[in-house]
């Protein structure tokens, strides 16, 4: 009765929506700030952003019960503006088409892409706002839940935004490597992004755990589960070591050894960031402990 009502579908959704939004931000940042460095990163990021968020949204829909086999009920989802899910539905249904249009524009896919290319800058600005909205929203979704004191903190959206940008950058870099493996040298420039956002993620995660340990008894129960309890092996190995520390060190090396690092290590660091992001979402959902009521 006390196990979490949400399972791996919601975990996947939180991860995919974050990674997709992050990939969009990485693509726009690359196209606006460093168009000469690597076209492949902007192209790769834009190509994966929309599909990642769309697959994540599909996970969300498959997690529904009556809303899945009576799909017309989904129209009710925008009824309550006090609910974060209502806002999420609005943001997602705007972001997915914009992200797909941006991918079409940047890669000049069919006539749609040629038309959209004329509006590249507006697409980038509107899309970035929606991407940040998507990433932050996944954090607010669980931060407003007072049934789980561990989630109920403003640090949650910050953590999810930082994690979304680092996983998104990782997804974009992997896509760029797939498009053109030779650009992997120039990708070293973007390893700095990993260094910055992984450190932000690490600091915010540390704050979240420490604040929870010293806060309410209920939040401390979840935090204890993560650092020394049932979930601690996953937390220390998957999230802290493989998800943050190893890619952080690899990215520093990558940035300073410009282009000299073996290709599989570059892609490996990105895969580890993705693994860490997914594990972080999973552990936050599975460590949910309700308040002690008696």
């Amino acid at each position: 009765m006390l196990e979490s009502a949400w399972g791996w579908l919601i975990v996947s959704y939180l991860f995919l929506a974050g990674a997709g939004a992050g990939a969009f931000i990485a693509a726009v940042a690359c196209d606006l700030l460093a168009p000469d460095w690597s076209k492949a990163l902007a192209r790769g990021g834009s190509l994966v952003a929309g599909p990642l968020v769309a697959v994540g949204t599909a996970c969300l829909v498959f997690d529904l019960e009556a809303g899945l086999w009576q799909p017309w009920r989904q129209f009710y989802l925008i009824s309550n503006l006090n609910s974060m899910i209502t806002w999420g539905v609005i943001v997602l249904s705007l972001f997915i088409p914009v992200a797909l249009l941006y991918a079409a524009a940047l890669n000049e896919i069919t006539f749609v892409g040629r038309i959209a290319k004329k509006y590249l800058r507006p697409l980038e600005y509107v899309g970035s706002a929606l991407a940040i909205g998507t990433a932050v929203y996944t954090g607010i979704l669980i931060a407003v839940v007072n049934g789980v004191p561990f989630w109920n903190t403003p640090l949650m959206p910050v953590l999810f935004l930082a994690s979304a940008i680092s996983t998104g950058l990782a997804a974009a870099m992997i896509a760029a490597a797939v498009i053109d493996i030779n650009t992997i040298r120039t990708l070293s420039n973007f390893a700095l992004g990993h260094v910055i956002f992984l450190s932000v993620e690490g600091v915010v995660l540390m704050l979240l755990v420490f604040m929870s340990l010293t806060g309410s008894v209920d939040a401390a129960e979840s935090a204890t589960m993560l650092i020394s309890g049932r979930l601690s092996p996953y937390f220390w190995i998957l999230v802290v070591t493989l998800g943050i520390l190893v890619p952080f060190v690899l990215s520093i090396v990558e940035y300073y050894e410009y282009g000299a690092m073996p290709k599989h290590l570059v892609v490996g660091a990105d895969l580890l960031v993705l693994l860490g992001g997914m594990s972080l979402r999973a552990l936050i959902i599975y460590s949910a402990a309700p308040p002690q009521i008696v």
């Binding site: 997690d63 019960e65 009920r73």
Partner: peptide, 17 residues
């Protein structure tokens, strides 16, 4: 009952479970 989609957000939100 006819409006519920089964998203389970309310189960998470209820402190009394």
């Amino acid at each position: 009952k006819e409006r519920c989609v089964g998203c389970k957000y309310c189960i998470e939100a209820c402190p009394y479970k």
